[in-house]
Write a protein that binds this DNA or RNA. Structure first.
Lengths: 201, 201
DNA sequence: ACCTGAACACCGTTCAAGT
DNA sequence: ACCTGAACACCGTTCAAGT
């Protein structure tokens, strides 16, 4: 058959993404050479370039995988009946399961987004979609009476995402351990942003 | 005289930092070659390497300049008699005077911090110092009775810095214009984090 | 279509030589 | 001390040739 083998294509691409991810976590995006990725993936440069057009294209693939995961998590929160509960549960799960590997890869991803205009554009669209999903959830909570009307849904959604990003930034700077210690206080801050009164547990 | 000429040294370093900054803003850190910086600074590679040990060392110099500016602004806020006022004034000035150039350079800086462990360590120290300065200011406001006692100063300081970083991230993704539209709502979010009641102006 | 590996263009850094 | 520019080692990408 001369036609393109889609299964092989998808499989090879997956192999390359995994191998590249490992390399990037170990040595960073710019410190790993294409030769490194080739060795890790067990193929020659020519073959690798058959599946990805450039080194940058590889990290774009990794970014897409990451964005999809965030997307799914937020959509689940948006669809849940109780916003606060769902959000805090997602946050806990996030802080629990985030490994050092994830954190390092997230840093590499962010760095590359900051650098490349085309990735920046995709990240901007993803960020807007995330914001809208959360804003929709806030609106629903306002209809249900859980969140006061005077809260600006869109802006508050953006601020909540900022808080989470900020925690991630702290975690990359000071180590993954801060995720666990930070989650409870982050909870309180998010509640304040959503206009909740203080409450003793 | 065979002894090191300190004035010339400082001047040349400044020339290089400025030239490199221009190059990085135009083409990004990794897309500008040392040859580009040499041309912009008007000197040969050998001379440039006489003043900076590496390309990474140049961006480290730019980072230090940036961190110093943040440091100064936050210390002024911390020393002001009225925290809220001083903070909001600083924020307005920040949003007003932030140029596209600053924003792009900030992005390049962040990307490089994410990548290099030694820069990461310095950024972590700077972030901690910023956080402490703001936490001190919150404590002072608590003593003055402007901010309620149940607020956790250190964590709230971290959260406020997260909100500002988040706004910067949004600005790099969606353009500098969001800084001006975002500042008023950011104000309200910060007030909420500091336990202030809603108020009509 | 899928794969190989030598070859090309380029870049960060060094170093012998000059003043 | 300060400066030059050719030279070195390395890296992302291409391409002629093979199956």
């Amino acid at each position: 058959m001369r036609t393109r083998d889609h299964d092989l294509n998808a499989e090879r691409r997956q192999t390359i993404l995994k191998a590249a991810g490992d390399c990037f976590v170990q040595n960073g995006f710019h410190a790993t050479s294409m030769k490194d990725v080739c060795t890790a993936a067990g193929m020659s440069p020519g073959t690798l370039y058959h599946y990805f057009r450039s080194k940058a294209d590889i990290i774009a693939g990794i970014i897409d995988e990451d964005a999809l995961a965030v997307r799914k998590a937020l959509d689940e929160v948006a669809e849940a009946p109780d916003l606060l509960n769902a959000l805090f549960e997602a946050l806990d799960a996030f802080a629990m399961h985030m490994t050092d590997r994830d954190l390092i890869l997230h840093a590499e991803i962010s760095a590359e987004i900051l650098r490349r205009p085309d990735l920046k554009q995709r990240a901007a669209a993803a960020h807007l979609a995330d914001q809208k999903a959360l804003a929709g959830a806030i609106l629903k909570a306002q209809d249900a009476g859980t969140v006061p009307r005077e809260i600006d849904g869109a802006q508050t959604a953006a601020d909540i995402l900022s808080l989470i990003d900020g925690m991630l930034w702290e975690a990359t700077l000071h180590g993954a351990a801060v995720l666990k210690s930070r989650t409870p206080t982050l909870r309180r801050s998010i509640m304040r942003l959503l206009g909740q009164r203080e409450q003793q547990s």
